[in-house]
Amino acid sequence: MQIQAAVNRSQPSSYLKTIGAIVWKDLAAELRSRELLAAMLVFALLVVIIFNFAIELQPALRLTITPGVLWVTFAFAGTLGLNRSMAIEKDRGCLDGLLLAPVDRSAIYFGKAVSNLAFMMIVEVIVLPVYALLYNVNLFQPGLLLTILLGSIGYVAVGTLLSSMAVQARTRDALLPIMLFPVVLPVLLAAVKASGGFLQQVPMNTIWPWLNILIVYDVVFTAIAFMVFDFIVEE
C-alpha cells in the first residue's frame, strides 16, 4: 500500500483523479439524498431570520452589521455541514472503505475538503441573494465574493481536519464547534473586517492586511492539514 501510495504521489494526474473521485462521490450522494444541503440551507436562513429579531437591522446600521451576520451564519451552517459530511462517512463505514483504497491518504483529505467547500459555497450562493433581497443591501461586489471564497477555504481547510477527529470522539457533534471556533478565529475576524471594508467601500490599502491574513491562513493550514491528516486516519 505504501509503495502504491508513493507511486500515486509521483503521478499528479492520478492524485487529482482520486480527489475528483471523492468529490464526485460526495456530490452524487448529496444529489440523491439532499439531506446535508437542505439542513445547512434551512439552518442558515433561520439564523438570518433570528438575527433580524435579535438585533434591529435598521437601514442605517445595516452595512456595518451585515458582514458579522453573514459570517456568523456561514460559520454555524458550516459546522453543521462538516459534522454531517464526516458522520456519514464514519457511520456507514465509508471511511474504512476509503482508507483501504490504495491511494495517498492526503488525497482523501483534499477530496473531503473540496466537497465540503462546495457545499459551503452552494449555501453561500443561496444565502447571499436572499439576504440582499430581504435587507436591500448590494452584496454583489467582486471584492466581497473574493473575501467569502478566501474565508471559506480557510474555514473548510481546518474544519475538515478537525471534523475527522471529532467524529472519532464520543462527544462528536458538540466537540467540533468547540475545537474549531477558537482556531478559526483569525479567519472569521479577517473575513468580517474585509467584507465590511468592501461593503463600506473603504480604501483598498486598509482592506489588504485582512486579505493577507486570510491568504496566509489558507496556505498555512492547507499545508499543515496535508501533513498531519495521515496521523488522524491511521489505525
Binding site: 481536519l161 477558537p182 478559526v184 478565529l185 498555512v220 493550514f221 499543515i224 498531519v228 496521523f231
Partner: peptide, 10 residues
C-alpha cells in the same frame, strides 16, 4: 498532538 500543533499555529 495534532490539535496542539493546529493551536500553536493559529
Amino acid at each position: 498532538a495534532v490539535y496542539t500543533i493546529i493551536g500553536a499555529l493559529s
